[in-house]
Simulated scan of single mutants.
Amino acid sequence: MPLEKADLELIEVAQNTIKKLYKDGKHHIGAAIRTKTGKIYSAVHLEAYIGRVSVCAEAIVIGKAISEGESDFDTIVAVRHPDPTQKEQKIEVVSPCGICRELISDYGTETQVILKGTDNYIKKKIHELLPDKYIRTE
């Protein structure tokens, strides 16, 4: 699915958030989410010395939006700030990890995710990134 102007703006919000809040060893992933009402929220991940305690930026931005009363999500994106020692210093779009894919799908089965394709950015619905998701039956 091709990107629209609003998607490029969402990427820019995530990039600006991580540029502003990047801290080596603490925050290197930023995320932004657009709700169906058009509001945009952004956040960074929280890295911890003990990896299990770390929290992904996607989880934090979803929680931030929910805390503000939003529950219908349109599109989400995550970006990674390069390590200061890397030659290339471009902030790039990154794919959500498996846990984030589960979380995104739990809170919006139709949510679109912006990804870096071979030649450009693309969008996919979360269920395309997490096919045959386990569904709890009561």
Rank of each mutant, 00 (worst) to 15 (best):
Phe73Pro: 11
Asp74Ala: 05
Glu88Phe: 01
Ala78Val: 05
Gln89Pro: 00
Ile62Lys: 15
Val53Glu: 15
Thr85Gln: 12
Ile62Asn: 15
Ile91Tyr: 04
Arg52Trp: 09
Val93Lys: 00
Pro82Tyr: 02
Glu70Asn: 09
Gln89Glu: 01
Val94Asn: 09
Arg80His: 07
Val61Glu: 13
Ala57Val: 06
Asp83Leu: 14
Ile99His: 02
Lys90Ile: 11
Lys87Ala: 07
Arg80Asp: 04
Ile50Cys: 09
Thr75Tyr: 09
Ala43Arg: 08
Lys64Ser: 03
Gly63Leu: 09
Ile62Pro: 15
Lys64Val: 03
Cys56Gln: 08
Glu88Cys: 01
Asp74Phe: 03
Ala48Asp: 12
Gly51Phe: 04
Ser71Lys: 06
Pro96Ala: 00
Tyr49Ser: 14
Ser71Tyr: 08
Pro84Met: 01
Asp83His: 15
Ala57Met: 06
Glu88His: 00
Lys87Ile: 04
Lys64Ala: 05
Ile91Gln: 05
Ile91Met: 03
Val94Gly: 08
Ser67Leu: 11
Ile99Asp: 02
Val61Phe: 11
Ile60Pro: 09
Ile50Ser: 12
His81Trp: 13
Glu58Met: 12
Asp83Ser: 15
Lys87His: 03
Val94Asp: 08
Ile62Met: 15
Val94Arg: 10
Ala78Met: 06
Glu102Cys: 04
Gly98Ser: 08
Ala43Asp: 15
Leu103Cys: 00
Glu92Gln: 01
Val53Leu: 15
Pro84Gln: 01
Thr75Pro: 10
Ile76Glu: 06
Pro82Met: 02
Thr75Asn: 11
Glu58Arg: 11
Ile76Trp: 06
Pro82Thr: 05
Val79His: 07
Pro82Lys: 02
Pro82His: 03
Ile66Cys: 14
Ile99Trp: 02
Ile50Ala: 13
Gly63Val: 07
Ala57Asp: 10
Ser71Asn: 12
Pro82Gly: 03
Asp72Gly: 06
Cys56Asn: 10
Phe73Lys: 06
Val44His: 05
His81Ala: 14
Thr75Leu: 11
Val93Tyr: 00
Leu103Met: 01
Asp83Gly: 13
Ala57His: 06
Ile66His: 14
Ile60Cys: 08
Gln89Val: 00
Glu68Leu: 14
Asp72His: 07
Ala78Gln: 09
Cys97Ile: 02
Gly51Thr: 09
Lys90Ser: 12
Ala78Trp: 03
Gly51Cys: 02
Val44Phe: 04
Asp83Met: 13
Ser67Ala: 14
Val44Arg: 04
Ser54Met: 05
Arg80Gly: 04
Lys64Gln: 05
Ala43Asn: 13
Gln89Gly: 00
Glu102Tyr: 02
Ala43Glu: 14
